[in-house]
Amino acid sequence: MHPDLLQDPRSAILLEALRESEPCVSHESQASPADASVAVGPALTPNQSLVPRTMDGFGALELVSTKGIAERMEPSERFSPRTIGPLVQRCIQLRLAERPEGDRSGARLTLAGRGLAKNIAE
């Protein structure tokens, strides 16, 4: 990187924003150089992956409650809203979902969450 870029405050802000948007990957799970073109997604259990997959069935702008997610799940895979709450929180921590209106106003998938949900469904 060019040294002048690091001295410009606007560049420093941009670089910090880019660093924050990069997925966190531990050294043990990093892809080898041969696999550099393959994106590494977050580690989700099969049960955790049901939440973004179900949330993907709602509109991109629709804020959905845990009860709404539970009602949309297949009966054979359905969790209670009490179980879904922490799973939604995990998705928020991984930046797969967001609560733009606050903690009690429902959640929606981010673009990264929608992309992951599409991969899970395939």
Rank of each mutant, 00 (worst) to 15 (best):
R114A: 02
E22C: 06
E20D: 11
S105T: 05
G102A: 07
D35S: 10
S21P: 00
L44H: 10
V25R: 13
L14W: 07
R53E: 13
R104S: 02
R78A: 07
H27K: 08
H2T: 08
E71K: 15
S80L: 12
G85F: 13
V88K: 08
R114K: 11
L14G: 02
D8C: 10
A97H: 03
D8L: 06
Q93G: 12
C91L: 13
P86N: 09
E22I: 04
L111M: 02
A43W: 05
A34V: 07
A112P: 01
A17R: 15
Q30I: 12
E122H: 11
S76N: 10
R108H: 03
S80W: 02
G68L: 05
L44F: 15
T45H: 12
G85D: 08
D8P: 05
L15W: 10
A34C: 03
D8R: 13
K67P: 00
P46G: 02
S76F: 06
G41A: 15
Q89M: 06
G106D: 06
S11N: 09
R10T: 00
H2Q: 07
E20S: 12
L63A: 06
R72T: 06
T54R: 04
S37L: 14
H2W: 06
S11I: 01
P3D: 03
R90I: 03
D8G: 01
V88M: 03
T66N: 14
E74P: 08
Q48I: 02
P9G: 08
S105C: 14
L44D: 03
T54F: 09
T66S: 09
R72S: 12
P100T: 08
D4L: 11
P3R: 13
M55Q: 13
L87N: 08
V88D: 01
F79G: 05
L61K: 14
L61E: 15
R82G: 00
P52E: 13
A112Q: 05
L44S: 05
